[in-house]
Simulated scan of single mutants.
Amino acid sequence: MRITLITVGKIKEKFYQDAISEYAKRLSRYCKLDVIQVTDEKTPDGASEALETQIKEKEGKRILENIKDGSFVIALAIDGAMLDSVELAGKIEKWGISGVSQLVFIIGGSLGLSKEVLSRADYKLSFSKMTFPHQLMRVILLEQIYRSYRIIQGEPYHK
């Protein structure tokens, strides 16, 4: 299976880059992984709701341009389904068995995702009602995808 992460903004901190590289290396046993970073828009302090919507739409357009036809899209959204690790593994396995060959996970920028991106999503996933920095969310997501593959393969993994 091919898994693509489409994310908004660049990773600046080396420790996040190192963690992402580590999970990408571990995942290479199980799937083909691509990470696509689209440019984020600068949000001025005190931006109006209209400006924030415009920013999300610009970032959303960049995200949508990177989704290939036929991809199964999972948007990380605070109002998405909350799953435990075994349930996520089951979803990934089910999607693969049902013929999905391309999973696309989307992590938005600091303002979240545009309505257009959310409406393109085939599934919305939430890791928590809490907000996380999008750089850290990449690491958490990759770790959970790795954990999912370990579970699917019946391999041991820390609980």
Rank of each mutant, 00 (worst) to 15 (best):
M1D: 15
M1V: 12
I3N: 04
I3C: 04
T7D: 07
V8A: 13
G9R: 11
I11K: 14
E13S: 03
E13Q: 07
K14S: 13
F15M: 02
F15N: 02
D18T: 10
D18N: 15
D18Q: 13
D18A: 02
A19C: 11
E22I: 01
Y23R: 12
Y23M: 12
A24M: 05
R26Q: 04
S28N: 07
S28F: 09
D34L: 04
I36Q: 06
V38P: 04
V38M: 02
D45A: 12
A47R: 13
A47L: 10
S48W: 08
E49L: 11
Q54F: 13
Q54R: 13
I55L: 05
I55Y: 11
K56W: 05
E57K: 03
E59S: 09
G60P: 01
K61R: 04
R62L: 10
R62E: 10
I63N: 11
I63P: 05
L64R: 15
N66G: 10
N66S: 11
N66W: 09
N66P: 03
I67V: 13
K68S: 02
G70T: 07
F72L: 07
I74V: 02
A75M: 04
L76E: 03
L76M: 10
A77W: 03
A77F: 11
D79H: 11
D79L: 14
G80T: 01
G80D: 04
A81F: 14
A81K: 05
M82I: 09
D84Y: 07
D84I: 12
V86C: 06
V86Y: 02
E87S: 14
E87H: 15
K91C: 05
I92F: 03
G96R: 05
G96T: 15
I97P: 00
G99R: 05
G99F: 12
S101E: 00
F105S: 07
G108L: 13
G109S: 08
L111Y: 10
G112F: 08
K115S: 15
E116P: 06
E116N: 10
D122W: 10
S126E: 02
S126V: 00
K129C: 15
K129R: 12
Q135K: 07
Q135G: 06
R138F: 08
V139M: 14
I140W: 04
I140M: 05
L141G: 01
L141Q: 05
E143N: 03
Y146S: 12
R150E: 06
I151G: 11
Q153Y: 09
G154H: 03
G154P: 01
E155M: 11
K159D: 14
